[in-house]
Design a binder for these strands. Structure first.
Length: 300
DNA sequence: ATGGCTTAACAATTAAGA
């Protein structure tokens, strides 16, 4: 089973990319964020032609989440129970026996803004809800745009981002609290390329300079983590014409059986952080590649 | 000097993203 997440930053603009990506990658479930579509405008027919069913929860202009899937989903959820929130940021469904929860966490704007408080409140409500969900579902996937880079190695320049929204300690602690409920950051189950990110600013030639953050995540319950055989970021989409500023992330779960042996490249006891990787790269700080990226300037 | 782009709304600017 392949499950993926992608913040498309307008499904209207990105529909061709999404259709191409589905055909190429054949996920069983693709979770989308920032569809920016009202439900009556959702492109059901085009996606059906590609062989995918659709569930969606959208609004005008902002936010909006969707689930594209081969099989139909059950037990739809469109909000965090008990959280007063008019913004469409949550969509859950069960596929086979896997509880999938697609989320678009508030951005937060700035640590001094009211939106940041909304973000923290939203994350606290998420934690309470996921705790309940985990008690009901042994196989649970929580994935989407978390708008949080959990560890230093998830940020191109940790000094620059220290204390800033997306990397501030309170939100990283909130992320950690969710993990501590019994979830695993699937990306860190495997050896990964250094400086792996899922988002790059449209400005400042950030993608070309790999000035990115890893803020899109796929978290797995213990039972599912044991079946996970891969987690990859597809940077290729960021090189397309009119790209989303986010790249898709996808996990592969073994078809069945919790007794599958770990794949060989996996770190079975690795915590959901990047200590191994950051030690590996510590000797390369300020290397030639990063030095060459310092030359960006329009002069004057 | 701390921006630079992209999107949606709406019709020249504003809000928002991250």
């Amino acid at each position: 089973m392949k499950i993926a997440t992608w913040n498309v930053n307008s499904l209207k603009v990105r529909l061709p990319h999404v259709l191409d990506w589905l055909a190429l990658n054949q996920p069983d479930v693709l979770c989308l964020q920032e569809t920016k579509l009202q439900d009556e405008n959702f492109p059901i027919a085009e996606i059906a032609e590609a062989g995918y069913q659709t569930l969606y929860s959208g609004q005008k202009t902002y936010n909006g989440v969707a689930l594209l899937s081969r099989q139909s989903g059950n037990e739809l959820i469109t909000a965090i129970p008990g959280l007063e929130d008019p913004q469409k940021r949550v969509l859950g469904a069960i596929y086979n026996d896997v509880r999938v929860i697609c989320i678009y966490v508030p951005n937060g704007e700035h640590v001094t803004s009211e939106k940041y408080q909304y973000k923290l409140k939203w994350l606290a409500a998420l934690k309470d809800w996921v705790r309940d969900m985990l008690s009901e579902h042994r196989k649970l996937v929580l994935l989407g745009d978390f708008n949080i880079a959990p560890e230093e190695c998830d940020v191109h320049d940790a000094k620059l981002w220290e204390g800033q929204v997306l990397f501030s300690l309170p939100e990283r602690e909130a992320f950690r609290d969710v993990l501590n409920l019994g979830l695993t950051d699937s990306f860190r189950l495997f050896e990964q390329p250094e400086k792996s990110y899922t988002w790059w600013d449209y400005r400042m030639m950030a993608f070309r300079r790999n000035m990115g953050l890893r803020i899109d995540h796929i978290l797995l319950s213990n039972d599912l983590a044991k079946t996970c055989t891969a987690c990859v970021i597809d940077k290729g989409t960021r090189r397309l014409e009119r790209p989303s500023d986010h790249a898709p992330v996808m996990v592969e779960l073994a078809a069945c059986g919790l007794e599958e042996p770990y794949p060989e490249n996996r770190f079975p006891s690795s915590p959901a952080n990047c200590q191994v990787t950051s030690e590996q790269v510590s000797g390369f700080a300020g290397n030639a590649e990063s030095a060459s990226t310092e030359n960006y300037s329009e002069g004057s």
